[in-house]
Nucleic acid binder design. Structure first.
Length: 490
RNA sequence: GGUUCCUUGGCCGAGCGGUUAGGCACUGGUCUGCAAAACCAGGUACGGCGGUUCGAGUCCGCCAGGAACCUCCA
């Protein structure tokens, strides 16, 4: 029943059958956050995309080692002499220890990811904890002649690399184009050529995050941490490398070049890139200032938000679009997702109300096959969700008695809904009623409904409706059935 | 300027050569004292112009509009 998994590989620009290097095992590396700002909706996308991938791989019985880094050093704010580590800049602004800032945002990231039901990676290496490994990679590249030292900094020689290796295999860039089209930046004089990128940067005097190296007191270059840490934890070659599309160039292209010189191999065989989340058609990003933090989503405290949204609404919203498509944020879209998810949630609750028959008029194996086929086709979560809504309709019809289902099929249906909704899509469908005092609440509500029933029997519609309306106002939804009434918290 | 990608119904969002995507909203019906929920039924679509094909949102070309990357970024 489980299909073979096809994944879109950016390297080949087509869907490919996924075959791991070592049968039964998957090495996955995903570019994690730079911890200098609060996690926002953009951070949720790759986290959820690769969480879905991991959950599905685990379900397919692969042993997965999922490495997702924390970038707490190494990305430059400006080029060359103005070079300053982002973390350090923010730290000075707030007069905090740089690592204190990094730790604060790392904690925040973890907190919000767990609210979104994103599972922890197997290993979460910090760039700052792997400076030694990064220096080793630089030495290796220098030894092989593909890097040069300049004024205490070390640069990767892209032109030389391009002579013997296919620079641009991932992004399709050509070195000549890069040379002629690169925008004029300050301090290019240390580099031999514009596309060259830093492996090690000498720290400016005011730069407080610095480490000793054979070349200078400084810090590792832009793209080095991923090469060094993926090699350390997943080996010279591993299965899947993931990240946002905005990292495709230059980050991943440079990573491939570094690793190829260092180890002789393209580090990952499958490269997966999630698309951006946009606001009014424009990328949601730190530098654009149009991002909404996850905290704001959950509290509703942002001028762009008409209301607060539950973490599961956001997860469902993201999963309703394919990971390689842009997804446009709007309150209307979020609210539609909220209602849709609620219907799904309610249907799962309703499964327990179904009475089995001798035989089925529904096709559960077909439903199962459809779900697996959707996931196997490059993690097509929107198609999977469409099939789940077919099941919602099926469940409600079964409850209404329009369809019939055998006991074994019912058991199977229940398991499949649980599998796809909870285990694989990672959606928490519990309705959030606290269990502590719910029994007393149940008793009170039963009493209210009993009183209403008596009123209705006496044709006192006005009082009966008043009770229903008032309960509605408080937040209880009353559903009058033909024989009895039920209620639920809205 | 270079590279890559996108344009689907009121909104979101799949599909990518021939058969209902799905959700939200909307309309009619069933049920109900009336509602709500649920169920049944229904409508609205592939940016424009050419081309390939028996047949094109789906392939090709041109045009228009938009985006991402080329600079830290998920």
């Amino acid at each position: 029943m489980k299909n073979q998994l096809y994944l879109y590989n950016t390297l080949s620009r087509k869907k490919e059958l996924f075959e791991p290097l070592i049968p039964g095992r998957v090495g996955l590396y995903v570019c994690g956050p730079t911890v200098y700002g609060d996690p926002h909706l953009g951070h949720a996308r790759p986290a959820i995309t690769f969480d879905l991938l991991t959950r599905f791989l685990l379900h397919l019985d692969y042993k997965v080692r999922y490495v997702r880094n924390i970038t707490d050093v190494g990305h430059l704010e400006n080029d060359a002499d103005e070079g300053e580590d982002k973390i350090a800049k923010k730290a000075k602004l707030e007069e905090l220890e740089p690592m204190e800032v990094a730790q604060y945002y790392t904690n925040r990231y973890h907190h919000y990811m767990s609210l979104l039901m994103v599972k922890d990676p197997s290993i979460e290496p910090h760039a700052s904890g792997h400076v030694i490994e990064q220096i080793e990679v630089i030495k290796s590249i220098l030894d092989k002649g593909y890097a040069y030292e300049s004024n205490g900094s070390v640069y990767f020689d892209v032109k030389k690399y391009d002579e013997g290796f296919p620079y641009g295999i991932l992004s399709g860039r050509k070195v000549e184009d890069l040379i002629s089209n690169t925008r004029t930046l300050d301090g290019q004089n240390e580099k031999r050529s514009a596309p060259d990128f830093a492996l090690w940067k000498k720290a400016a005097p005011e730069h407080i995050m610095r480490w000793p190296s054979p070349w200078s007191e400084g810090f590792p270059g832009w793209h080095l941490e991923c090469s060094a840490m993926s090699k350390k934890y997943l080996g010279e070659q591993f299965d899947i490398h993931g990240g946002g599309m905005d990292l495709l160039f230059p980050h991943h292209e440079c990573e491939i070049a570094q690793s190829t010189v260092d180890t002789g191999k393209v580090p990952a065989r499958y490269w997966m890139h999630n698309n951006m989340i946009t606001v009014n058609g424009q990328k949601m990003g730190k530098s654009l200032g149009n991002f909404i933090t996850l905290e704001e989503f959950f509290t509703g405290n942002n001028k762009n938000l008409e209301q607060a949204y539950e973490p599961m609404t956001i997860r469902f919203f993201i999963l309703q679009a394919h990971y390689r498509s842009t997804l446009d944020f709007s309150n209307a879209a979020l609210q539609a997702a909220e209602k849709g998810f609620d219907r799904l949630r309610q249907a799962i609750e309703n499964i327990s109300k179904i009475n089995p028959s001798d035989k089925s008029s529904v096709d559960i194996p077909a439903f199962e096959q459809n779900c697996y086929a959707a996931l196997a086709d490059d993690l097509n979560s929107p198609i999977l969700i469409a099939h789940l809504f077919d099941a919602v309709k099926m469940i409600n019809s079964l409850v209404a008695g329009n369809l019939s289902i055998s006991e074994s099929d019912l058991l199977q249906l229940n398991q499949l809904m649980n599998l796809f909704v909870s285990d694989i899509l990672g959606l928490d469908v519990s309705l959030g009623q606290s269990t502590n005092d719910s029994s007393k609440l149940d008793e009170v509500m039963d009493l209210m409904l009993q009183v209403r029933s008596d009123l209705k029997n006496n044709k006192d519609w006005a009082t009966a409706d008043k009770i229903r309306d008032e309960l509605n106002r408080i937040g209880f939804e009353i559903k009058d059935g033909s024989s009895s009434a039920t209620w639920q918290l809205k």
